[in-house]
Design a protein around this nucleic acid. Structure first.
Length: 513
RNA sequence: GCGAAAGUAGCUCAAUUGGUAGAGCUCCAGCCUUCCAAGCUGGAGGUUGCGGGUUCGAGACCCGUCUUUCGCUCCA
């Protein structure tokens, strides 16, 4: 590794741009923050990873089927899921301590402090007077009444401000109450801002109250609301799974680290519906199955670890992350959650529809429990690419940049070169390409010396280069050069297709599962 | 969001204290070449991220803004 660790990630990002994997969105207009486009090679690699996931989930499991639900969904779905309420907090920053607070929490804590003062007064009075009438005291004691008036005043102002969505007024309350930051002790506040995680738009030509539509912040809800449709029409028996890949959108306050945290990203989720009480067995099953799937990429088993959640979300009774050793450290790649029956129960309540499964063995109906596996496709892309990226120094001092991508995932499976651009070699190359292109993405290059052409293919991770020389015209053989070892051997043109099918198909990966 | 650094050709970088924007690679058209980049000739490509300001004159100095990276913060 010739690059220093701090430069390594930068080099990967540059490489992604230079070789058509990832471009900044809207680059000619100065870019759009935390949004990226996939280029010609990136789109292929991403598609291949998605395809591998889909086949490993849907094709390899008789009891898992896939769906493709819409990004737009009924707004009540996000009320049921908890996303509307959980992500509507007014936030404020203290400029001195750089700490961020929820404005409503600051105000409520301030009110609580005043209440404490009242309680102290009451306690003092209790000790002083016999036959103490607390209610009377609270209504008559001048100091207590003053405190209580203050509380009522703040309460009513705060309620009005929230109802009117008046963030300026919320800040004014904080200023008027002289609330200070517990860390810096100063009153140097920013304006109050509303950070809503969900992007919204409106349906219909007129933007009116009540027709707000959200861009989904997770694909899972599209599975939950279709769970009964799929179960009935597919005659699915528990346990069964529903898989889905698709875009999701989160208006992240801080989105960074290249494509690791983007505002628009793609998820690959599978919700597994199980009998209540068996969920922990399936949770353990999917933990092991998903880790094994990741390991088949061959990026190094030491680069993966589980990170169990200690503090669980309200809907989960167990949760873990599979973390990957990214260039910037171990970070979440996939989440595996035991989501209980929370989501389906919520949707039963909000929709008024029964979402139960009739278990013929038990002879009773119940709401299934759910075990979720959810992996970020863009993160998986970044993991694959960054672990494959190698800056090598060869014998003789030459250097090369190579992507040791799993061959089945490489954007281009083989490049075909005429050794020289004459004597009928280009024509033979074209013929070979025309034979192979029905099954594999192959490319042609005749420019520059053959060594240079090999390096270009190394840089985008093409596993095989096929070179046509003068001998090829005589005996119908070519040399095939392997990316990682740079070794080559002769092979009959007629056996090229079989060779590639064996080496670069997804089957080879699926058989490792 | 705060702090720090950066932004010049597709890429990597130059450009004396402010004085005519350059090089290498890439790319394109040729020539030469029988297996691991950097042989020859010619060519294309830049309102120096964007917008103001100071100045006779700004890539450089000042202000604003956008984007990226790092640290903090956040991450159902």
């Amino acid at each position: 590794m010739s690059a220093k660790p701090e430069d390594f990630f930068k080099n990967i990002i540059s490489h992604c741009k230079e070789y058509g994997f990832i471009f900044q969105s809207s680059e000619i207009y100065d870019g759009l923050s935390a949004v990226y486009d996939y280029g010609q090679n990136g789109a292929e690699l991403k598609k291949n990873i998605r395809e591998y996931w889909w086949r490993a989930m849907v094709q390899m499991h008789e009891n898992i089927v896939g769906i493709d639900s819409a990004i737009f969904m009924h707004p009540t779905i996000w009320k049921a899921s908890g996303h509307v309420d959980a992500f509507n907090d007014p936030l404020i920053d203290n400029k001195d301590s750089k700490k961020r607070y929820r404005a409503d929490v600051l105000i409520e804590e301030h009110i609580a402090k005043i209440e404490d003062k009242i309680n102290k007064e009451v306690d003092k009075a209790k000790k002083r007077f016999e036959n103490f009438d607390e209610a009377m005291f609270r209504n008559t004691n001048a100091r207590v009444v003053e405190y209580q008036t203050k509380i009522n005043d703040i309460h009513s102002r705060f309620k009005t401000a929230l109802n009117d969505n008046n963030l300026v007024q919320v800040k004014q309350i904080i200023v008027d109450c002289e609330i200070v930051c517990p860390i810096s002790g100063t009153k140097n506040w920013t304006d109050v801002r509303q950070f809503n995680l969900m992007f919204s738009t409106s349906m219909g030509s007129v933007a009116e109250e009540g027709n707000t539509i959200y861009l989904r912040p997770e694909t899972a809800q599209g599975i939950f609301v279709n769970y009964l449709n799929v179960q009935k029409t597919g005659r699915m028996k528990i346990p069964f799974g529903i898989a889905q890949t698709g875009k999701a959108f989160r208006n992240e306050i801080v989105a960074r680290q290249f494509i690791f945290r983007m505002r628009e990203f793609e998820q690959m989720e599978m919700q597994y519906f199980v009998k209540p009480g068996t969920e922990m067995n399936w949770y353990e099953y999917w933990k092991a199955a998903r880790l094994k799937w990741h390991q088949t990429f061959g990026l190094g088993n030491e680069n993966y670890k589980f990170h169990d959640h200690i503090k669980l979300a309200h809907y989960a009774n167990a949760a873990t992350d599979i973390e990957f050793n990214f260039p910037f450290g171990f970070k979440e790649l996939e989440g595996i959650h035991s989501r209980t029956d929370f989501d389906l129960k919520q949707h039963e309540q909000f929709s008024g529809k029964k979402l139960q499964y009739f278990d013929s063995e038990e002879n009773k109906s119940y709401v299934p429990y759910v075990v979720e596996t959810s992996v970020g496709l863009d993160r998986l892309f970044l993991a694959t690419l960054s672990a494959s990226y190698k800056e090598e120094t060869l014998d003789g001092g030459d250097t090369r940049v190579v992507l040791n991508l799993p061959p089945a995932l490489a954007p281009i499976k083989a490049a075909v070169f005429p050794l020289v651009k004459k004597d009928g070699l280009p024509e033979l190359a074209e013929k070979i390409i025309n034979d192979l292109k029905f099954d594999h993405i192959v490319t042609y290059d005749e420019k520059d010396t053959v060594g240079k052409r090999y390096r270009r293919q190394d840089a985008i991770g093409t596993p095989y280069c096929i070179t046509i020389d003068h001998q090829s015209l005589e005996d119908q053989t070519v040399t095939i050069r392997e990316r990682d070892t740079m070794q080559q051997h002769r092979i009959a043109i007629s056996s090229l297709l079989k060779f590639l099918n064996e080496k670069v198909s997804l089957t080879s990966l699926l058989k490792k599962l």
